[in-house]
Write a protein that binds this DNA or RNA. Structure first.
Length: 576
RNA sequence: GAUUCAGUAGCUCAGUCGGUAGAGCACAUCCCUUUUAAGGAUGGGGUCCUGGGUUCGAAUCCCAGCUGGAUCACCA
């Protein structure tokens, strides 16, 4: 990019960069900088009486400077927070030459620059713990100005709020908006907390394929790709269930995986095309055991993040101290007054009509019940609720209920009106499993394009025998949204999926000179919006272009010799 | 995919009835020899998202498009 297309502030910073080099200061030094403390440690442990921290070395971004003549106060931001620096001219310039303070510090440093300082900690007259700087060093110059966000007593001023800016340039969001980094460090702690529990029980963390020839384990539209050597289609996984169960067949008693799944579906506040799921499968357990385990896991996470089972989410306080349990039909009875047990397809169609729920002829019994539940029950379930005993049609991988052949031993955990976990007593009868796959196939022939593919290798694995097993899956993004009180999945993903940014096509200077345009005018032309020769050729009034160029020359003091009107006209008319 | 709202300086945002483009912060210069979202003064900085249309005149009204948000649909 040419200088002229940069903003004034960017040009000034580039100028400062050059001046630093002129002064013999490398703005991007190579050597390590031996940091020995963080802002947080100092603020937590400094004591006026002990006068500890007499020799600290700390580094971070310069986030604000208040110059007060020969003394200055500055804000240094490191990973853990901010700390005030106190810098005096005569401390950092002990000799006659005051250039380091007057020129380098006061003029050539900018907000956003990385610096390293050495000094001692003290408390200012205003009572703020600060570092009295003895030496400072530029570690990396920042050429693009950061938006300045200020905070006082928890009130944030001028926060960067434009979602497009925040998500596309997450690095800036993380630097300037208080609390954003905290969300992501909590996300990491949530995962660690779960992993601690699983490992303490001796369950094995495993990895299974993301590229799958048959996308199984869930009903969803997959992403499809192609392997060149094998010349076959491959699908990005929509779930890892079938692979994890193969490992139970293989003899592991407990396996789990934190996995990225991919679903080629709509995007909104709770859906991103790629998302993180934890699935765990444990042999010799059933879904009742898994309910208790799920409860224990979530309580541990809440305690580790909040130190309490009570978690604020939006308007509500969610209390993970107590989990309600309702069967699917109990819950529908509770919220609609209708007892659906024993109803057939036609009955359910009528119930839907009564309740004003749209249906399609392709919908089976399971789908209809799911519609009623999703429409009339789920939104009411704010406090943690286990919904269990799902219709067999909507759970093709789940074991039939021990007492009722129309149901399966499945539960979901609903929190804040959204599904959070899904768990089964896993189906381990291979013949039943094949039947259920075939029923799914019939559904797909009926027009349900989300019905499952048949994974015959998975059936073969079951034929060798899988012990009774309970499995559970939990959406890590949604769990993080709950635990960090973020309303949108985009706020708990570093880089949520977005439409690619449009880049304007810009021709190289050579293209212009090839077209007979002097190189010295290329910058001016591009700044005026003629980014390509093609665009230039479309100009209809050469006189106007000529005026624009002369005006630009004058306005920006380029001191170029203005071309004649005929010359400009010649640039845009094709040569014969 | 449908509906709807928004897009103005680096950031946050005003902009009346259609009549010369504004503020705070940021930036620059100077003052102040010094303390808290940085005290004062002065100044520079704009494709008012893009393209059409209406009009003597459009940031403003109309149409289309782009991008994003929200709601719905789809989907766990």
């Amino acid at each position: 990019m040419s200088q002229i297309q940069l903003s004034e502030q960017e040009q000034l910073r580039r100028k400062s960069l050059e001046e630093l080099r002129t002064l013999g200061i490398e703005p991007y030094p190579a050597a390590l900088f031996p940091v020995n403390v963080t802002s947080k440690e100092i603020k937590e442990n400094y004591s006026d009486t002990n006068n500890n921290y007499t020799d600290v070395t700390i580094a971070g971004r310069l986030m604000g400077v208040r110059v007060m003549g020969k003394a200055s106060f500055a804000e240094l931001q490191d990973e853990k927070g901010r700390i005030q620096l106190y810098i005096t001219r005569d401390d950092i310039c002990p000799g006659e030459n005051k250039e380091l303070y007057n020129t380098v510090f006061k003029k050539l440093l900018d907000i956003g620059d990385f610096i390293g300082v050495k000094g001692f900690v003290f408390r200012t007259q205003m009572g703020e713990i600060s570092i009295h700087v003895k030496e400072f060093l530029i570690l990396a110059k920042s050429l693009k100005p950061l938006p300045v966000v200020k905070e006082k007593d928890g009130v944030v001023y001028d926060a960067v709020t434009d979602p497009e800016f925040r998500y596309r340039q997450r690095y800036v969001d993380l630097v300037v908006n208080p609390g954003v980094r905290e969300v992501f460090s909590k996300r990491s702690r949530i995962i660690t907390s779960m992993r601690e529990l699983f490992n303490s029980r001796g369950y094995l963390e495993v990895e299974t394929p993301i590229l799958q020839p048959i996308p199984g384990g869930a009903t969803a539209r997959p992403f499809i790709t192609h392997h060149n050597t094998l010349d076959i289609p491959l699908y990005l996984r929509i779930a890892n269930e079938l692979y994890l169960k193969r490992l139970i067949v293989g003899g592991f008693d407990g396996v789990y995986e934190f996995a990225k799944d991919f679903r080629n579906e709509g995007m909104d506040r709770t859906h991103n095309p790629e998302f993180t799921v934890m699935e765990i499968y444990i042999a010799y357990k059933d879904y009742f055991w898994m309910m208790d385990f799920t409860k224990e896991m979530i309580q541990k996470v809440a305690m580790d993040i909040h130190g309490s089972t009570k978690v604020p989410v939006g308007e509500n306080i969610i209390d993970f101290g107590h989990f309600e349990k309702l069967t699917m039909s109990e819950s529908i009875l509770k919220y609609t007054g209708i007892d659906i047990s024993g109803m057939n397809d036609a009955d359910l169609q009528n119930v839907c009509k009564e309740l004003g729920i749209e249906t399609a002829p392709s919908m089976g019994k399971g789908k209809l019940i799911d519609e009623i539940f999703g429409e009339k029950v789920e939104p009411h379930l704010i406090q943690p609720t286990f919904i269990y005993d799902y219709p067999v049609e909507m759970s093709p991988l789940c074991k039939k209920h021990r007492n009722n052949p129309e149901l399966t031993e499945r539960f979901e955990l609903i929190v804040n009106g959204k599904e959070l976990c899904n768990a089964y007593s896993e189906l381990n009868d291979p013949i039943d499993q094949l039947d259920r796959f075939q029923d799914q196939l019939k559904l797909s022939e009926k027009g349900d394009d989300e019905a499952m593919f048949i994974d015959l290798d998975f059936v073969r694995a079951l034929e060798y025998g899988m012990p009774p097993t309970s499995g559970m899956g939990i959406g890590i993004d949604r769990l993080t949204m709950l635990m960090t009180n973020q309303p949108s999945i985009q706020d708990v993903l570093f880089f949520p999926q977005m439409r690619p940014e449009k880049r304007e096509k810009v021709d190289t200077p050579e293209k212009y000179t090839e077209a007979g345009i002097p190189e010295e005018w290329v910058d001016a032309l591009q700044s005026l919006g003629y980014k390509t020769v093609e665009l230039l050729k479309q100009v209809e009034k050469p006189g106007k272009l000529h005026q624009e160029l002369c005006g630009f020359n004058k306005k920006n003091h380029l001191n170029l010799k203005n071309p004649s009107q005929d010359e400009v006209a010649a640039w845009i008319t094709p040569k014969i």
